[in-house]
Design a binder for these strands. Structure first.
Lengths: 195, 195
DNA sequence: ACCGATTATATCGGCGCGATACATCAGGCT
DNA sequence: AGCCTGATGTATCGCGCCGATATAATCGGT
């Protein structure tokens, strides 16, 4: 998950850890924030795997002359994506496996949807819908045989959750319909799909 | 989290791991399922801490004569809560710390709300509300400064999330109001609070 | 001149997960 | 009798992510 997020962002520009985390926050819109305790180990993991490389930063002062010229900039490790990294990114983007429908994972995937091929988008959306529908059915059946041992509060929480899954299914249906429409009638797109 | 769930269930009756997991599923109504990879280590943790003890099962056949009498029952470890465990449970129930407002943790707490003292209930509910409100504000501000770098899909996900947080806040408000009302006008309760 | 906030990197223990490995037992089918 | 499937039951392993914590330089304000 972090793998996709990091690779996805580094594909756009090389950055250092701290900055990467901030951009991740912007990109996911606070929908999800990763801790440094996840980020730095992940960075090392990806480096070991050869998917990214780190340059010890030596940006000269005049590169970014923000008001005062005095600068020396302490150690910053700037990460850059490699060719293998780009391959891996393509794989991850196109992947629509079961773990992809998790709340968190789905959110991350959505954030890079504009770079995701159309059929992968469909598979991810449909997979997510299936997962949410399953949860919905689980909640429904829990509610129907409720009253027995289940706490009143829990029952109400289930009702809230049920509403929320129903809404998400409707939302996904709209997305999927739109996606299908655009697939056979491509819009005046901003990101030119080759085709 | 598992600590609370396990202690909470064992307080009602001693059971073995497998059964415990099933009951947990019923209790939380599929809202959340714990894996064995979590459960058994947790059981060992609690045992080491002296909060529970394990009896190697030797229930005689006639204790549970379900249709056929033939029985020998292979190794089952039955866990029982100790006095310290009960103390710890009381602590956990009354706790309303920050980690309590997490989705998962909140759900588990709710499942044992009938055993939770009234003021702790209020603190948990209000804390949860605060957390959801914060998330809501985060999403709102993300949406208001959207259009910039954020993907169209992510923006729509934010909108969905925003709706959902708004609904939950309303839901919590109702719960809190009701709670407050019952606090000064106790209902004809089913679970006789000593008082 | 000092002080707090921000920038920046890093590690640690802990928790929960998915995968996997074992066994035993019940029931049904052939 | 033999077999197979599915439920019962316990357990472990590595992995990913988190929260807490440490350290330190630099920046902005007073």
């Amino acid at each position: 998950m972090l793998e996709l997020a990091i690779l996805g962002l580094l594909h756009e520009a090389p950055v250092h850890g701290y900055e990467l985390r901030k951009r991740l926050g912007v990109r996911l819109g606070g929908f999800r924030v990763f801790s440094y305790g996840s980020l730095y180990p992940a960075l090392r993991r990806l480096t070991r795997a050869g998917l990214i490389v780190e340059d010890t930063d030596q940006s000269s002062p005049e590169t970014t002359p923000s008001s005062s010229g005095s600068w020396s900039r302490r150690s910053r490790r700037v990460y850059r994506i490699t060719a293998e990294g780009k391959e891996r990114l393509a794989e991850l983007l196109a992947d629509a496996g079961p773990q992809t429908w998790d709340d968190d994972s789905f959110g991350v995937h959505l954030a890079f949807f504009s770079r995701t091929p159309a059929e992968a988008r469909m598979r991810i959306l449909e997979g997510r819908r299936r997962a949410v529908e399953e949860r919905r059915e689980g909640l429904r059946s829990a509610l129907s045989r409720a009253g027995e041992q289940i706490d009143r509060y829990t029952r109400e929480l289930h009702q809230l959750g049920l509403d929320s899954t129903e809404r998400e299914v409707r939302w996904l249906n709209e997305l999927i319909t739109r996606e299908r429409a655009e697939q056979q009638d491509p819009p005046g797109d901003e990101a030119g799909t080759t085709r």
